[in-house]
Design a protein around this nucleic acid. Structure first.
Length: 215
DNA sequence: GACCAGGCACATC
DNA sequence: GATGTGCATGGT
């Protein structure tokens, strides 16, 4: 029985060989990544893209401009991303935090330590662990591993964790067994989403998946 | 029409 | 502390 470390290396190798580099996050600027991270909560990326292009077309994809928008207008723009009422609130909560604590400056945010930033992000209503970690890794290049529903399926289906594993446990499995490397964390998570979208369905589970390690 | 998608907060027990 | 539920659009 290979060690967890060995399994994680095999999985990464297979994913990279099959799919190559993913060039994540699919956003042009760190701020766009932050907005996308909130909009993609439990939502397919295609719908998020529609919402983001609405914001771009209206030329409001900047923290100050988004905050100035009337709530109804903002909701209208992000409507395609689903849950638009609650996401309007969440986005505004984040924007307020971003403006009040960091003047809307990515540079100022980057200067703060990972643990302090993570705590601050998690204190924003509407920003949970996955969203916070996505912002930290993909917008701010901080070394933290992002987990999600695909991560969960891949780990459980390869017997790397139990069905009851929560987010922190999934994250520890990666962070305790991989070198602390922003580039690796970035690519690994992106590759899991890539294979996940295609093959890690609830059912039929794993059909045709190139990751045929244990199942 | 059913099922799914890169979660999260909140109510209730 | 655990378990259940609301939130909503768009693609397959």
């Amino acid at each position: 029985m290979p060690s967890t470390k060995e399994m994680l290396n095999r999985i990464y190798g297979l994913l990279y060989k099959n799919f190559g580099p993913q060039h994540w996050w699919p956003g042009e600027t760190p701020f766009e990544v932050m907005v996308g991270a909130i909009l993609t909560q439990n939502t397919s990326w295609g719908n998020v893209e529609k919402a983001i292009s609405n914001l771009k077309r209206a030329e409001v994809l900047e923290p100050q401009k988004l905050l100035k928008l009337p709530t109804t207008k903002l909701a209208e723009f992000i409507r395609p991303a689903g849950y638009f009422n609650i996401k309007t609130k969440r986005l505004r909560n984040f924007l307020k935090f971003f403006m009040e604590s960091y003047d809307g400056s990515v540079k100022k945010m980057e200067a703060v330590s990972l643990s302090k930033l993570r705590e601050e992000l998690l204190s924003v209503n509407g920003v949970g662990r996955e969203t916070a970690d996505s912002i930290l890794l993909y917008a701010l290049d901080k070394p933290i591993f992002v987990c999600d529903t695909y991560t969960y399926r891949i780990l459980t289906r390869h017997n790397l964790c139990g069905e009851e594993a929560d987010y922190d446990e999934l994250q520890s499995i990666f962070m305790d067994n991989l070198p602390e490397d922003v580039k690796l964390f970035n690519e690994y998570h992106a590759l899991m989403v890539r294979v996940g979208k295609e093959f890690c369905k609830p059912k039929p589970a794993c059909e045709g998946c190139p990751l045929k390690i244990l199942f």
